[in-house]
Simulated assay, not measured.
Amino acid sequence: MDVDTRLLRYFVAVAEEGTLTRAAERLFVSQPALTKQIKQLETLLGVRLFTRSRTGMTLTEPGRTLAERVPALLAGWDEVLRETRSTAGRAARLLRVGFLASAANEATPRIIAEFTRRRPGWRVDMRQATWSDPSAGLADGDVDVAVLRLPFPGQDALRTATLFTEPRWVALPEGHPLASRAVVPFRELWEEPFVAAPPETGWWRDHWLATDERDGHPVRIGAVTDQPDEWLSAIANGYGIALAPASAARFYARPGITYRPVSGVSPSRVGIAWAVADDANPVVQDFVRCCLDRPWPEGITT
C-alpha cells in the first residue's frame, strides 16, 4: 500500500498540535481540507487515528503507534530528497534561491554578481513564492536558500540571519483621506479594512496586519490576496489598505496607490534562511556570506 507523504505530514501536525485549527494554521491549509486529508489517511490504513471532541484531537492506540514512527520516516525522506536535489544542483552548477516579493529588492543583482564572482560557472535560479508559502520553498526543499521576511512559520527548524530592517509604511488608494498626510499614526488605521494574506499563513498574515500592535482592537478584512498584482489591484480599487515595507513604494509604485510612512508600528526584517544540514555546504554558505557582506540601500538598517 502506498501512502502520500503529504498525508503523513498532515497527521503529524494534528498529532503534535492537538487541534485541527492550530494544525491547519501550521500547514497553511484550510481546516475542512485538513479534516478531509486525515479521514483519507484513516481510510487508507483502515484504522481510526484520532478521537475527536470539542477540546481537540486525541490519538488512539493505533494513532500513537503511527505518531512514534512517522517523524523519523519523514525526516529520513526529507534528507534523501534534499541530498538528491543538492547533488543535481551541484552537477548543473545551479543554486536555487527562493524569495518573496520585495525581499532583497535592489540588492539582489549585486548579491548574485558577487556569488558568481566567488563561484565561476555557477548560476543562480531565483524562484518567487506566493505569500501562502512564507518560507519561499525552503521548508519543502524546493530551494537551497531563501531571502524572505522574518519572522515566518517554521523558521525555528531552519538557520536564519537578519540582513536588514526597514520601516513599515501603508499602501492607500490614491483618493484616500489619509493619502495627503506626511506620516500616518497606526492608530488612525485601526478602523480601516485591510487587504490581507490568506488565513492559512497564520502569523505571517498577523504580522502584516500588526494584530499584536492594536491594543486588542479587531482587524477588519476587506480582501484576501496571495500575489503582489492582486494585492495592488485590491488596494487601488478601494477594497482596503495594507501595511507594506517602505521599499514597496519603489518596487510596487503604480497609478492609483499612494504609500505613506506609518508611526507607532514596528519595522519589518529581511533575512536569509537555509537548512541546518547546509551549514556544511560551501556553495550555500558562499551565498549566505554574499548576502551578509553586502551594503544595503539608504534608509534601512542592518
Results as ranks from 00 to 15, higher is better:
Thr108Glu: 15
Ile235Val: 13
Thr43Gln: 14
Phe152Gly: 03
Phe186Gly: 11
Thr160Asn: 12
Ile111Gly: 01
Leu59Asn: 05
Thr55Ser: 15
Phe287Glu: 02
Leu27Phe: 08
Ile272Met: 09
Gly238Arg: 02
Trp274Asn: 01
Phe50Tyr: 09
Leu138Ala: 11
Asp144Val: 00
Leu59Ser: 10
Ile257Pro: 06
Gly299Ile: 00
Thr225Gly: 01
Ala92Glu: 14
Pro120Phe: 07
Gly137Thr: 03
Ala277Trp: 07
Val143Thr: 06
Trp122Cys: 00
Lys36Ser: 15
Gln37His: 15
Thr130Ser: 14
Arg69Tyr: 07
Gly76Asn: 10
His217Gly: 05
Val184Gly: 06
Gly56Phe: 12
Val262Ile: 11
Pro199Lys: 03
Leu8Gln: 00
Glu188His: 09
Pro245Arg: 03
Ile241Gln: 00
Leu41Cys: 13
Asp142Met: 12
Glu166Val: 07
Arg9Phe: 10
Glu83Pro: 01
Val276Pro: 05
Glu298Met: 12
Gly137Gln: 08
Leu66Met: 13
Pro261Trp: 03
Leu34Asn: 01
Thr211Met: 10
His217Ser: 14
Arg64Pro: 05
Gln37Ile: 04
Val97Met: 10
Ala171Trp: 03
Gln155Gly: 02
Glu166His: 05
Leu158His: 06
Arg90His: 14
Gly256Arg: 09
Ala210Met: 03
Trp231Asn: 02
Ala249Ile: 04
Leu148Ala: 07
Ala171Gln: 01
Asp125Trp: 05
Ala277Asn: 07
Arg85His: 12
Val184Ser: 01
Thr35Asn: 13
Pro109Glu: 04
Leu95Val: 14
Asp279Thr: 14
Thr60Lys: 09
Glu200Val: 12
Pro261Met: 09
Val29His: 03
Pro193Ser: 08
Leu45Phe: 12
Met1Ala: 11
Thr116Arg: 09
Pro245Gly: 03
Leu100Met: 11
Trp169Met: 03
Glu213Leu: 06
Pro185Trp: 00
His207Ala: 06
Gln285Ser: 05
Leu81Thr: 13
Glu298Lys: 10
Arg181Ser: 13
Asp226Glu: 05
Leu292Ala: 10
Asp125Ile: 02
Glu79Met: 10
Asp140Arg: 14
Arg254Met: 13
Ala75Asp: 15
Ala104Arg: 06
Ser135His: 03
Lys36Pro: 03
Trp190Pro: 04
Tyr252Met: 14
Leu100Ile: 13
Pro32Lys: 08
